[in-house]
């Protein structure tokens, strides 16, 4: 019985890649106005950055806020800029592939959160319970000759 054989077109005949479509086909990028995404992302990031730096260097001057609150606001500004850059520079777009990458990122961020917060919780309690007191630390430092 004759074998059933399927042939492919020769690879050497492949045309040059269509650059207009390439990022859309491979990465799911939106076809319309990439420029708007990049410019918006850049300006928003700039604003968040400048806001953060201003706040950090003049906390008392601007809002008379306590340090932890300022730290929290800076953290939120960072998160906001993170989200901005994620959506405007990474072009998540629509489609199953984009959703897949998004959820993998979310899962990774969840694990990052667990690792960092878990480590800090554990190390903080260990520090409180197991580390030497400042007086003991001072004594130790004074006795050290080179470790």
């Amino acid at each position: 019985m004759k074998p059933y054989i399927a042939k492919f077109h020769s690879r050497l005949g492949q045309p040059e890649v269509d650059t207009q479509q390439y990022f859309e086909n491979v990465a799911g990028w939106p076809q319309s106005r990439l420029s708007i995404a990049y410019v918006t992302g850049f300006i928003l990031s700039l604003l968040f950055t400048l806001a953060a730096f201003t706040l950090a260097t003049h906390p008392a001057l601007i809002f008379s806020l306590s340090l932890p609150v300022v730290a929290a606001i800076l953290g939120m500004l960072a998160l906001a800029q993170f989200v901005v850059q994620l959506f405007f520079f990474f072009h998540f777009g629509r489609g199953a592939a984009a959703r897949e990458r998004f959820w993998i990122l979310m899962f990774t961020l969840a694990l990052v959160g667990i690792l960092v917060s878990g480590s800090i919780w554990i190390m903080y309690t260990l520090d409180a319970r197991m580390m030497p007191s400042p007086a003991q630390m001072e004594q130790y430092m004074n006795s050290q000759t080179g470790i």
């Binding site: 990439l34 420029s35 990049y38 850049f42 950055t49 730096f53 520079f89």
Partner: peptide, 23 residues
């Protein structure tokens, strides 16, 4: 701040690179 603005701008120019590539 200088370092941050430099890196941010480079991210923007990277975006310009991609736009030019598409065109």
């Amino acid at each position: 701040l200088t370092e941050t603005l430099i890196l941010l701008t480079s991210s923007f120019t990277m975006g310009l690179t991609m736009m030019a590539a598409r065109a």
